[in-house]
Amino acid sequence: MHIHKLEKIWLVFGIGMLGVFLLILGISTFSYGLEPPSAHQAVNMENLYDTPPFDELGLNKLNDKEYEAILTAYVFGFNTGDEEFTVPVGSTVHFKATSPDVVHGFEIPGTNANMMVVPGIINHVTYTFDEPGEYLILCNEYCGVGHEIMQTTITVK
């Protein structure tokens, strides 16, 4: 099949760029650990709040400036335990979430923290908060009539 010379140049250049692009994506995923949230751990929805780690919702301090935040997204809110999250500036927070009902989203606007919260599976996302402030956490997956009121915050100070 005949391909015009200019088209050959165009395609070689385009496909070459594509190769470089995919290589960068691949390297950043597998060598730099920038994997999309893909946790695999199943959890029973029926008695969720009796099952670790969701029997103790809230922040757990793991190390200096490293926290684990256990929460659920439900219709229509985020269950963060007894109080809203508060961490010092520079903290790395590992969010672990699931849902006792329908599919929700977990997003902190202005950051790269974004994941789907699917019932029956635990999902994780990690973010380091270098700037102080009150960060909004919202649901970005339609979950029902009160979807737009689902929110909580994490305060960094």
Binding site: L11, I15, L22, G26, H40, N114, M116, V118, I122
Partner: peptide, 26 residues
């Protein structure tokens, strides 16, 4: 952004997704 699918299979499908760039360029 979903749990339950490993990063490898996600990445493989990302690569396949981007192959439509070729017919688009054509």
């Amino acid at each position: 952004m979903e749990p339950g699918i490993s990063p490898f299979w996600k990445f493989l499908q990302v690569v396949l997704t981007f192959l439509v760039v070729i017919p688009s360029l054509m």
